[in-house]
Nucleic acid binder design. Structure first.
Length: 471
RNA sequence: GCCGCUAUCGUCUAGAGGCCUAGGACACAGCCCUCUCAAGGCUGGUACACGGGUUCGAAUCCCGUUAGCGGUACCA
């Protein structure tokens, strides 16, 4: 039977890169095995769940090219079944009503903390006789439902960690249904995973401590537990769980910075999973082909933005400019650059080799398109200062020579010939002549070769910028 | 505190007892190329947490220590 896996985010925030990676791993497993990938939105926390967050998750997955086969299902719609499961357990005495109030529980918890130990519910309501419990319900006392934990070992063969074992007596009788009749996470998850016939639960290893509780629930419901695969967390550069204070953590943040979805997906796949060997850049087909749960790392991984950007640069270089056109346009629009009818392809080609993100490309294209975006940077200023009068002088020499070229000669090849000839005639090194021009045209000391730069900016505009800079 | 998980270069990782004086990638440094930068090529430094076992032999297996992380809710 083909596996059935699911990604089950709660719509209480943006799509975190950790969540995206979990989704990706599930997706890879489903695609690898010919299984089914289900998307289930866990919106049982009505306080914090919003439709906007759901949409962001959907958009993020779509952007990454992670497609699901079933869903999205919304967990909150299934609370009648969750409640029915809880009541079934109640009827079978595998669960019991708890009349302790939140306040009482909180007081006991504080006392436990003060005493330096951890709070565990003592199961007192579990010792009420059925008659006593019925009487309290009768008199209108609100009650939650707790699962009766049984002693003994709860262990499973984790697909990434191998055997993990807990003891039943270390776990307390946890609540499965709130006093308002809504289900608690662990119950909802198990109930839904049973209903959706999920065979493999691939999720973050921060859920490891939920797993024994969930296995207890499977047992109580007389259902076989699925295979669990707990994948490692993603950490910030300081080794702490990746969070907002580390900067960009949402998939959308990287989209806005101009990371390509395939680069992001490739990078995420390699964070905590390895196909073995030396592979770095993996096309989708190979990624699926090579994927296995065994290749998943046990250890948490630090999210290294520098490597992401490197990888993005690799993808950028491999893409023809035409494929980058639309996303670059989007970034240009955000930057407020007007295209003024220019063919952007040569501009993108001119700068993409030196770019790590689409935003880099758009910024550089903007500088080439619009003189008002030329800002003299530190290196450019330094060069002009160092050269002093020679800076202007060399610009004027260049201006004079370049002015002599006709519009039809204004192409990379003829420009190169003219520049080399000029350097020879003047007895100057190419760099001495060209660096000031580069600064005049872009404001900085880094760009494509100057002949190409001149060609891409255009004759009149280039000459204007050179003359202006020579003042 | 308790329960659990983890431990190879700064980072991502390869490594399933001899192929390991530990390989690759990112980052870093140097050189080559060169009008600058990027790319590319070459070179370099840096790692098996520690201590005990097991074994002819251990990065790999076992135990302990230490450290880090996760959980410890009528959150998910």
């Amino acid at each position: 039977m083909p596996p059935r896996v699911r990604f089950a985010p709660s719509p209480t925030g943006y799509l975190h890169v950790g969540g995206a990676r979990t989704a990706l791993l599930n997706w890879l497993y489903a695609r690898k095995t010919g299984g089914t990938f289900i998307l289930r939105i866990e919106d049982t926390d009505q306080e914090r769940s919003t439709e906007a967050h759901t949409q962001v998750i959907l958009d993020g997955l779509k952007w990454l090219g992670i497609t699901f086969d079933e869903g999205p299902f919304f967990q909150a719609q299934y609370s009648p079944r969750h409640r029915a499961d809880a009541e079934k357990l109640l009827a079978e005495h595998k669960a019991y009503r708890c009349f302790c109030t939140r306040e009482e529980l909180e007081t006991a918890r504080q006392a436990a903390i003060k005493a330096g130990s951890s709070f565990r519910y003592d199961g007192r309501c579990g010792r009420l006789t059925p008659a006593e419990a019925a009487a309290r319900v009768q008199q209108g006392d609100p009650s939650s439902i707790r699962l009766r934990m049984v002693d003994g070992e709860i262990a499973w063969e984790d697909a990434v960690h191998d055997r993990i074992s807990f003891q039943g007596h270390d776990l307390d009788d946890f609540i499965i249904l709130r006093s308002d009749g809504t289900p608690i996470y662990n119950l909802a998850v198990v109930s839904d995973d049973i209903e959706m016939a999920v065979t493999h639960v691939i999720r973050g290893d921060d859920h490891i401590s939920n797993t024994p509780k969930q296995i207890a629930l499977y047992r109580a419901l007389d259902q076989p537990a699925p295979i669990f695969a707990h994948v490692p967390m993603i950490l910030g550069p300081d080794g702490k769980k990746l969070s907002k204070r580390h900067g960009a953590t949402a998939v959308g943040d990287y989209q806005h910075q101009g990371i390509l979805p395939l680069a992001m997906r490739n990078f995420l796949a390699l964070l905590g999973w390895s196909p073995g060997g030396d592979r770095e850049i993996l096309p989708e087909a190979e990624m699926i082909e090579l994927f296995s749960l065994e290749g998943i790392q046990k250890k948490a991984a630090v999210f290294d933005v520098a490597k992401l950007e490197w990888m993005n640069g690799q993808y950028l270089s491999a893409r023809p400019a035409a494929e980058l056109l639309e996303p670059v346009r989007l970034h240009l629009r955000e930057l407020g650059v007007t295209e003024s009818g220019r063919d952007l392809i040569p501009l993108i080609d001119a700068v993409k080799a030196r770019s790590r993100t689409l935003l880099d490309i758009a910024t550089q294209v903007g500088v080439r398109l619009d003189a008002s975006r030329v800002v003299r940077d530190a290196k450019g200023t330094q060069l002009a200062a160092k050269l002093g009068a020679a800076f202007s002088a060399n610009l004027l020499i260049g201006h004079a020579a370049l002015s002599a070229l006709t519009p039809s000669q204004w192409n990379p090849a003829d420009l190169e010939t003219a520049i080399k000839a000029l350097a020879e005639r003047e007895g100057k090194k190419l760099g001495d002549l060209m660096q000031p021009v580069r600064v005049a045209l872009t404001g900085g000391t880094v760009s494509e070769p100057v002949n190409e730069l001149l060609a891409v900016i255009g004759r009149d505009e280039s000459l204007d910028r050179i003359r202006a800079a020579a003042q």
